[in-house]
Amino acid sequence: MKKEWPLWEVFIRGQHGLNHRHVGSLHAPDAEMAIRNARDVYTRRKEGVSIWVVPSAQITASDPGARDALFEPATDKIYRHPSFYDIPDKVGKM
């Protein structure tokens, strides 16, 4: 029998109050072992307080070719940012 351990994506919450962030991937036979391995591979120096693992095969990614269609329309909508609006100084902090 020969079967490679599946790949898992690892997400770590660095500190209380922060989001889990993708840090890398690893091989493990199941979710429980993936957590154990992630602890050894990605948190040897107190890098985190919580770990998520997700089978890599379960991730759906956006198409790199669709980058412009997805993200380009946002670039000319500068009115979505607070710096677009001039508020007179005498109004004070807003």
Partner: peptide, 25 residues
């Protein structure tokens, strides 16, 4: 701790190579 780090470094790198369509095995 140092030798364990080397194992970790190997694993990070195998994963980076695997994104190019080759498996670790």
């Amino acid at each position: 701790a140092k030798v364990q780090d080397e194992a970790g470094h190997g694993l990070y790198l195998y994963c980076a190579a695997e994104t190019l369509g080759v498996s670790r095995d």
